[in-house]
Design a protein around this nucleic acid. Sequence first.
DNA 1: CTGTTAGCGCTTTCAG
DNA 2: CTGAAAGCGCTAACAG
Lengths: 333, 333
Amino acid sequence: MVTMADVARLAGVSAATVSHVINGTRAVRPATAQRVLAAVERTGYTPNTLARGLARARTQSIGLALSGVRNPFFMELVGTIEAQVGRAGLVLLLGDTGEDPQQELRLVQAFVQRRVDGLLLAPTAGAGDRVLRYLAAQSLPVVLLDRFASTALDVVGTENEEATAGLVEHLAALGHRRIGLVAGFPGLSTTVERIRGYRVGMLRSGLGEDAKLVAHSGWRAATRGATRALLDLPEPPTALISGANHITIDVLHVLAERGLRIPDDVALVAFDDFDWADLLVPRLTAVAQQTALIGARAVELLLARIEDPTLPPRQERIPTTFVHRDSCGCRAR
Amino acid sequence: MVTMADVARLAGVSAATVSHVINGTRAVRPATAQRVLAAVERTGYTPNTLARGLARARTQSIGLALSGVRNPFFMELVGTIEAQVGRAGLVLLLGDTGEDPQQELRLVQAFVQRRVDGLLLAPTAGAGDRVLRYLAAQSLPVVLLDRFASTALDVVGTENEEATAGLVEHLAALGHRRIGLVAGFPGLSTTVERIRGYRVGMLRSGLGEDAKLVAHSGWRAATRGATRALLDLPEPPTALISGANHITIDVLHVLAERGLRIPDDVALVAFDDFDWADLLVPRLTAVAQQTALIGARAVELLLARIEDPTLPPRQERIPTTFVHRDSCGCRAR
DNA sequence: CTGTTAGCGCTTTCAG
DNA sequence: CTGAAAGCGCTAACAG
């Protein structure tokens, strides 16, 4: 591996000069610069970012920790974030928390050890304590993704409550009285907020609260079990709301396995939209998160905070859009 | 930020000793070790991986470069690879090539500068030259993903040709004579192999070659256009094969927009399966790639090569599985 | 079993 | 406009 010293020798200058022409960090006589550049070219020199990072205490990299296997929504987010980060000339370190606080902590520590300049994190449900405290101690620029787990940090996420309430009201307006919710991973702020939104919607629609109508899911098997339990109620719901991306797929599977027709036997609306949602029969009515916006905004906030760590914490709610299709039973449009 | 020297001072030992107890790299008197560990604990010391990497010429990180936005299949791959890499105690740097050779080169260079220990790359179509040559010059452990773009490097990918031929034969056995193919991104080895497989299948089935029956797609708009063109042929195909993941979604959209019924108006089979493929009506018949296996194997090969860079190049073809459902027109099972 | 001493490759004062 | 030199924080001989 060719080093800066090699280039310096070949160009007949000092390492300092090489460094400066490479970084454009001080004026260099054009002729000298030319020789350096030529030497770089000839040797195929590539700066060693480790050494640079060590000297500068800046690595031009940021960490992203979330739970992707669990959630297609996050995989989309990874895409938009990677693009954004790349455009800023930074490199992305990616890790999967698996929704496990232990793993999450390990991951975040690994990132810290790598001296990332900033961190994007979708905190796990149990995270409240450990990771957030650890992060605070590191005074590392952080923005939380999707989940409002702290008011002391920047957070970018979706407006969950009103969106879910809207879903309920839509169903209620169609005459549904028993509306079930298959809620997301327990303990996440998104889950909590969507459940709250569901309640608000029920109340506003003059429908009582019936705790039995909200099913608490977990990992895949649990989600299907919870859905079946809902359908097995003495008085089963006539309409279902799926609380998230991956849940929708499970709900659809269960409905199919029971031979229930949508929307006639049971209407369905979902939180989170898909590429292929209008390929289903009936086409899926859903609330869509603005993934690209969320990702872009999160990166912006992080870069700003890296620039100026003293900024007051900002919490941003990105609005959803309602995609009115047919599974709600409207024969829409 | 607390440094190793701080810990050493607090524990009343030399930095060398601290280093050795942390890395378990030489025997240390238990009592001493205890003091060091205690000091680490008290100070909340976190090793600086940059410095370590600089000294060891090893970063415990690997780079992954592919085109995710373009391809859900790759996003799945990212998931399995991340898990595998994490399990090995390494960190993953992720970058998106956008199927653009320029961007790909920049990305790979960024990874090299970061001194990743190894690289996983799904080379772009135009990559043959630049990147691969650059990589060769770096003598960096590399394994290519999905695309057989070099015989000098390790490659892990799917068995494309026979799988596609099988799809054709399946359709032909059902009586189809005009079978169309919506091929993938031009120039990729996967695309080339699947087209070849298509031809083989046609020949074996006693169907001639008709170049007009294979549509060459590109980015999204192009894919839909190509599909429409196929359907607008004077003698349109009675069956369609989708050449990849994302193409299937576009094909389905076009079919829907034309009001064509599957499989009656046109049968459809696809390369690549989905989570939700059996939620469609009719359920989609497809050839599934073993994503998890591909990812796992790629990481294994890379780790092995990092251990021993002199290994001869290995090229592995992971077999596909045929998921027989209804869109082919069999009313299967 | 432990400490000293060189680096690893780059950046950045401080002089000139 | 340019060079010398002192680190950045850690590892790894080399001595004891």
